[in-house]
C-alpha cells in the first residue's frame, strides 16, 4: 500500500492512504510526497494522485482583481487543530536541527554532533512511515541539546562565581 504525505505550509502530515488523502484540504499547489517521488511535488503535478484528486490543468483565463483576491484567499492552507491529530496519522516530530547546530558551533561539539545525528533522522524516518523512530530520534536530539544547554549554563554560572570571587 502506497503511503502519502502532504504539507500544509506549516507542518508535514502522514502517512495516508489515497482515500484518506482525498479528505484532506489538498489544493493544486499543496506539496505532496510519496515513495517514488524524487522530491516534494505540487499535488497538481504528482502523477499518481492528480487525477484521483481531480486536478486538471485549467485554461488560463484573465481574472479581475476581485477574483484574483478570492483565489488567493482559497489558496491559504486551512490550519488543522491539534485535537484532530490524535488519529493514526501524525504531525512530524520537531527535529531540533537549528538548536543542535547552534550547540555544535557555539558550545560543545561532541554533544552537538550526537544531537545533529539524531536530528537528521527525524524527517527521513517520518517520511518512510516510521513515526515511532522519528519520535525517538526527535526525543534524543532534544535530550542531547538540553544537556548541552544545561552544561553551558552551568559553566557560565561557575565562571561567574569564580570571576566574582577574583574581583572581590
Amino acid at each position: 500500500m502506497k503511503r502519502f504525505f502532504y504539507s500544509d505550509g506549516e507542518n508535514q502530515f502522514g502517512p495516508f492512504t489515497i482515500e484518506e488523502l482525498k479528505e484532506k484540504p489538498i489544493k493544486p499547489d499543496t506539496l505532496i510526497w510519496y515513495q517514488g517521488l524524487e522530491e516534494w511535488t505540487a499535488a497538481s503535478d504528482a502523477a499518481l494522485i492528480k487525477e484521483e484528486l481531480g486536478f486538471v490543468k485549467k485554461p488560463v483565463v484573465e481574472l479581475s482583481d476581485e477574483e484574483l483576491e478570492q483565489q488567493m484567499q482559497e489558496m491559504i492552507p486551512a490550519s488543522i487543530p491539534e485535537s484532530k491529530l490524535d488519529g493514526h496519522f501524525k504531525k512530524m516530530p520537531y527535529p531540533w536541527l537549528v538548536e543542535s547546530i547552534l550547540l555544535t558551533i557555539f558550545c560543545c561539539q561532541p554533544l552537538g554532533i550526537v544531537a545533529i545525528i539524531y536530528a537528521a533522522q527525524v524527517e527521513s524516518k517520518f517520511t518512510k512511515g516510521d513515526y515511532e523512530g522519528a519520535k525517538k530520534a526527535s526525543d534524543n536530539a532534544a535530550l542531547f541539546t538540553k544537556i548541552g544547554l544545561f552544561l553551558t549554563a552551568g559553566f557560565v554560572l561557575f565562571y561567574f562565581i569564580i570571576a566574582l570571587g577574583a574581583g572581590m
Partner: peptide, 9 residues
Amino acid sequence: IVLFSSKAA
C-alpha cells in the same frame, strides 16, 4: 522542506 530535510542535515 529541502533546506531542512534529513539529507541537508
